[in-house]
Amino acid sequence: MSHLDATAALHAALLHIDNASRAAGRPEARLLAVSKTRDAAAIAAMAAAGQRAFGENYVQEALPKIAALRALGLEWHLIGHLQSNKADAAARAFDWVQTVDRDKLVAALARQRPAELPPLNVLIQVNIDDEASKSGCRPEAVPALAAAIAAAPRLRLRGLMAIPAPVEDRARRRAAFRAMADLFAALAARHPGVDTLSMGMSEDYVDAIEEGATMVRIGSALFGARPPKPVTQTEQTP
Rank of each mutant, 00 (worst) to 15 (best):
Ala141His: 07
Gly136Glu: 13
Leu155Val: 01
Ile79Val: 15
Arg38Ser: 04
Arg52Leu: 05
Arg111Pro: 14
Thr234Asn: 10
Ala186Asn: 07
Phe177Cys: 06
Leu4Ser: 15
Arg113Trp: 01
Gly73Gln: 00
Arg190His: 10
Tyr205Glu: 00
Ala89Asn: 11
Ala148Met: 14
Ala107Val: 14
Pro139Cys: 08
Ala91Pro: 06
Arg138Trp: 03
Ala189Lys: 09
Ala175Glu: 15
Ser198Asn: 01
Gly212Leu: 09
Cys137Phe: 01
Asp5Ser: 14
Met199Asp: 05
Pro230Cys: 09
Asp204Leu: 03
Ala148Tyr: 03
Asp195Tyr: 02
Val106Asn: 08
Val167Leu: 10
Asn121Thr: 05
Ala148His: 12
Ala108Cys: 12
Asp207Ile: 02
Arg156His: 15
Glu211Cys: 03
Val97Met: 05
Ala147Glu: 11
His3Asn: 15
Leu120Ala: 01
Val106Ser: 10
Val231Lys: 12
Ala179Ile: 06
Leu63Cys: 13
Asn85Arg: 12
Ala181Ser: 12
Leu197Val: 01
Lys65Val: 01
Arg190Ser: 14
Asp39Asn: 10
Ser198Ile: 00
Gln60Ser: 08
Asp169Glu: 14
Val34Lys: 02
Glu75Pro: 10
Arg38Ala: 03
Pro64Val: 00
Gly25Val: 09
Thr99Asp: 09
Ala110Lys: 00
Ser220Asn: 06
Ala91Cys: 06
Ile209His: 07
Met46Val: 08
Thr37Tyr: 09
Arg111Met: 15
Leu109Cys: 09
Ser35Cys: 14
Ile17Asn: 00
Ala42Lys: 00
Phe177Val: 02
Leu4Met: 12
Glu61Cys: 05
Ala108Tyr: 06
Ala93Glu: 12
Leu69Gln: 07
Phe223Gln: 00
Asp195Cys: 05
Cys137Arg: 02
Ala8Thr: 14
Ile79His: 12
Ser84Trp: 07
Gly200Ser: 02
Asp5Gly: 12
Thr7Phe: 06
Leu74Arg: 00
Gly25Phe: 11
Lys104Val: 15
Lys229Ser: 15
Leu160Arg: 07
Ala185Ile: 05
Met201Tyr: 00
Glu56Pro: 12
Leu157His: 06
Ser84Glu: 13
Glu28Asn: 13
Phe223Glu: 04
Arg30Glu: 08
Phe177Asn: 07
Gly25Ile: 07
Leu10Thr: 05
Ala45Trp: 02
Leu197Glu: 06
Ala148Thr: 11
Lys229Asp: 15
Asp130Lys: 10
Ser220Thr: 09
Ser84Lys: 11
Ser84Pro: 08
Val97Arg: 08
Gly73Leu: 03
Gly212Ala: 08
His81Asp: 09
Leu32Met: 11
Ala152Ser: 13
Leu155Cys: 01
Val34Arg: 02
Ala107Leu: 14
Leu63Tyr: 11
Lys134Gln: 13
Ala208Gly: 03
Ala208Met: 04
Ala13Gly: 11
Gly55Lys: 01
Leu145Ser: 08
Arg226Asp: 09
Thr232Ile: 10
Phe223His: 01
Ala42Gly: 04
Pro230Glu: 06
Phe54Cys: 01
Arg52Cys: 04
Gly55Gln: 00
Leu78Glu: 02
Ala225Glu: 02
Val100Trp: 09
Ala115Gln: 13
Ala225His: 04
Ala87Gly: 13
Leu120Gly: 01
Arg154Lys: 11
